[in-house]
Simulated scan of single mutants.
Amino acid sequence: MRPARALIDLQALRHNYQVAKQLSADKALAVVKADAYGHGAVACAKALVDLADGFAVACLEEALELRMAGIAQPIVLLEGFFSADELALIEANDLWCVVHAEWQLAIIEQAHLTRPLTVWLKMDSGMHRVGFFAHEYRAAWQRLQDSNNVASIVLMSHFARADELDCTSTDEQYQLFQDASAGIDAPISICNSPALVAWPHIRSDWSRPGIILYGSQPVPGSEQQFLPVMSLQSKIIAVRELPLGEAIGYGAQCVTSRATRVGIVAMGYADGYPRHAPTGTPVSVEGCRTQLLGRVSMDMLAVDLTDLPHADVGSAVELWGQSVSIDEVAACAGTISYQLLCNVKRVVREYSPY
């Protein structure tokens, strides 16, 4: 069997949720959308089932997967519903639903439900993806408040730049949200991962930790300790001894500057490793840090074994995890850890006990 695999440390996931919960003013939704950021939504939800106040997913399909797996906690649909016929399943499965647009609000008002819904009403405070503008927000809340199809309402918004500590945008968004919702007696949800970590004066009744659950640090230099949950691993499958001046890989992007011992790893962009990671991106071989050489191929990549004489065919390789931070790899590849984790596929996932 091909040796590429993703080891998922569920005890680390539990630790990270507990840290996020400590940072939260009250309750914390564990965000497990996009298959728990590539970690496996069902396995991660089951690992958190005795800790989490609830879960958040993007859409109905993701929520139904959790319900079918026996997850009974509250589940919030962060994108709400996409058509009126989804309301029956939302009601039947006791799901909580974000409402971010007038057309969704109108569908709820006109629906024939046997029991009312819990609605999370989203305000666009500056992200400008979805949500009611500040001048529309109170009227939207009042319409939901007046509807017999709504049992309770949570007020929510989302920060666009909470990972930028030198930017005033987060405080401006928070103030706009406070002004628009002033006087409304309802719980609020506004803190995402970077807001929890870096903006301690901003707290909400329901926080929404996402990337920090999986061990990535959304704000550089933070003192909070989040443990890596995924270790992306493989093995050396071939070794090449190359003299000075030899090109490695597609496009001859890397040319040896000395006699070089090259290890070929069973891992590529088809597994989710970033194709644009450049020469020099850190890699760990048998616990020793070395570097990527040349372009990443679909199924293989090359690493420098010149200073690792003990490494050979069969040696263990970690692409990110305990020895190499996923944030380092993401920075080298010009992307973010979210994308790397969500892109992992084809590799076997193996879960540690918790």
Rank of each mutant, 00 (worst) to 15 (best):
R5I: 03
L7D: 03
D9R: 00
L10T: 12
L10W: 03
Q11G: 14
A12D: 13
H15G: 05
V19D: 09
K21W: 08
D26R: 15
K27N: 11
A30H: 06
V32W: 08
V32N: 02
D35H: 15
A36V: 11
H39L: 05
G40M: 09
G40C: 10
A47M: 12
L51A: 08
A52Q: 07
F55C: 08
A58M: 14
L60R: 00
E61V: 15
A72V: 14
I75V: 07
L77V: 01
L78E: 01
L78N: 01
F81I: 11
F82V: 06
A84Q: 12
A88R: 03
A92F: 00
W96G: 09
H100F: 13
A101G: 11
E102K: 15
Q104R: 08
I108C: 00
H112M: 11
L113V: 10
R115T: 06
L121T: 06
M123A: 10
D124A: 11
S125Y: 04
M127N: 13
H128G: 12
F132R: 14
F132P: 03
F132G: 09
E136Q: 15
W141E: 05
Q142T: 08
R143S: 11
L144Q: 04
S152K: 04
S152Q: 06
M156P: 00
H158V: 04
F159I: 11
A160V: 02
A160Y: 05
A162S: 13
D163L: 03
T168C: 12
T170R: 04
E172M: 11
Q173Y: 03
Y174V: 07
F177E: 13
P187N: 02
I190P: 00
S193Y: 02
A195T: 15
H201K: 12
G210V: 02
G215A: 09
S216V: 04
S216E: 09
P218G: 02
V219Y: 13
P220K: 08
Q224H: 13
F226D: 06
L227H: 08
S234W: 04
K235P: 05
K235G: 15
I236P: 00
I237D: 12
E241W: 08
G245A: 13
A247R: 15
A247V: 14
I248T: 01
Y250G: 15
G251W: 07
Q253S: 15
C254R: 09
S257P: 12
T260V: 09
V262G: 04
V262Y: 00
G263T: 07
V265T: 02
V265N: 00
A270F: 10
A270N: 10
D271L: 03
D271K: 00
D271H: 10
P274S: 07
R275L: 04
H276L: 07
P278A: 01
S284R: 00
V285W: 00
C288P: 06
T290Y: 02
L292F: 07
G294F: 01
R295E: 10
V296A: 04
V303S: 01
L305T: 01
T306S: 06
P309M: 08
V313N: 11
V317W: 00
E318D: 12
E318G: 08
E318P: 11
G321A: 10
V324D: 09
I326C: 13
V329D: 04
A330T: 06
T335N: 05
T335V: 05
I336L: 09
Y338E: 15
L340M: 10
L340D: 03
L341D: 01
V347A: 11
R349P: 06
R349S: 04
Y351E: 13
S352A: 15
Y354P: 07
